[in-house]
Write a protein that binds this DNA or RNA. Structure first.
Lengths: 246, 246
DNA sequence: CGGTGGATTGAGGTAGATCAACATGCGTGG
DNA sequence: CCACGCATGTTGATCTACCTCAATCCACCG
């Protein structure tokens, strides 16, 4: 996992799954707005930096929502399960994403690391106060919240109406696009989640996911060095597959 | 469709699918907070009241998001479709719900009336200005937005991991609960949407939805006077069915 | 090495889709 | 008021995409 930051790009991020921002005045802190340094520092001083290993819980559904996290390194999955264990994964968070922002009094889903991960943690009260003093940042978060909803709806469409191939292709393209937006590596694209987690995201089974990866590979649409890294060889085709053509 | 409002309940709503609020100072206006009358009036004066027939578009995905609506009567469906026509319905809005709040520059989904419907329409700029002056109302909307996300995730779980029976049972219970919260009639519960729309909400087909309604009826779990009105006879059982028991 | 947790691959089963026929209700116009 | 047509809903028969179960493979690690 390599990390470096160009001094020219604001909030530029390199490497695989890390995103310290070198411009905002604080390492491993991702509110990418040119804040006045005093205010920045005051919030930063109250941030607790955390480090998890792979497959550790960040929080669980139902717990009192005392903290807000900003992920700086690694990936986190949000999910909820039925009583009998069937699980739905809502999304895979990338460095730069906030975790637990949308919660009311209690977290509404489980959050678990998929890889080694780091985050800044803020007390909810501190964070709210900070937002009250920084309406520009707050506005950004409102945008983020509305994009979460848009993404959830995209996912509903995937789960309710797409075929297995369309789901897997959409999953790959979406992850790739989001990684690209954050300047993470997209070729090969890192897949720290297991087939089981991809299955729980796409509403399929492990076996179906595996078979479809196999089919995409033998078609020459993608290449898999190992199970955790995809190289997209024919993006146009993948796009068509994700929308029901072919 | 009968409408009356008790003078004791704030924002109490009666009847089937109508929700004028008699306390907020303006008929057919649902920001249920005791606003100072001057501010209330200023926004109310700029609201345009609209009336649609059944199956009319409110707006379509991709259109510039110039307005925000507050539904006062009837039901509206939010959906998006794939190029080949497959459609996913995200939810059915009830009187009191806002429409188009979450949009960025453009609406992210199609909104269509399921019945005769009325709404107050506000210019986005007017509305935003109003919110800026009324942080309490704005806070309420933030809550509403976060509950939209919670609901979307509930729906993702339904679409990704529930069986057909569980989906239909969940749909009925959810609609019933939301109708109850707004003091709309819940017994019998009005279903202005067609089987096709229920199918597009549950990710099933018309036929499967119809068969499951039939099964629930012959079990004695529900009763259907006609296709558009359900009476829940055994709520506990319906709840168990929605969660995978039985 | 052997053991363990993924991932892949194959064979067969099934929930729900699809296709098809029919029923029902409703508005329209004669 | 009835006859017709159309939209919606129900029900049955069959099909199939994906699931389930099972075997094998593979990489990593103590």
């Amino acid at each position: 996992m390599t990390t470096s930051a160009s001094s020219r790009d604001h909030c530029s991020r390199r490497g695989d799954l890390a995103a310290p921002c070198s411009v905002c005045g604080a390492k491993e802190f991702n509110i990418c707005q040119p804040l006045d340094p005093a205010r920045q520092a005051s919030l930063y001083a109250r941030a607790v930096r955390l480090h998890w290993a792979r497959r550790e819980p960040v929080f669980a559904a139902g717990q009192p929502a005392r903290h807000v996290y900003n992920l700086t390194e690694g990936m986190v999955a949000l999910s909820r399960s039925l009583a009998d264990g069937r699980r739905q994964i809502f999304g895979f968070l990338l460095p730069g994403d906030f975790i637990g922002l949308e919660a009311g009094d209690a977290y509404g889903c489980d959050a678990e690391t998929l890889s080694d991960a780091k985050a800044c943690r803020f007390d909810r009260a501190t964070f709210d106060a900070f937002l009250r003093d920084n309406p520009d940042v707050a506005l950004g978060l409102v945008r983020a919240a509305s994009s979460d909803l848009a993404q959830a709806r995209q996912h509903e469409l995937l789960l309710g109406r797409k075929t297995a191939v369309e789901r897997v292709a959409s999953f790959l393209l979406d992850l790739r696009n989001r990684a690209g937006e954050r300047h993470l590596r997209t070729q090969p694209l890192s897949l720290p989640m297991t087939r089981s987690e991809i299955a729980d995201y796409t509403g399929l089974t492990i076996e179906t996911v595996s078979r479809i990866f196999g089919r995409l590979k033998s078609q020459g649409t993608i290449d898999l060095a190992d199970a955790t890294a995809v190289r997209v060889l024919d993006e146009a085709r993948l796009k068509r597959l994700s929308e029901g053509a072919d």
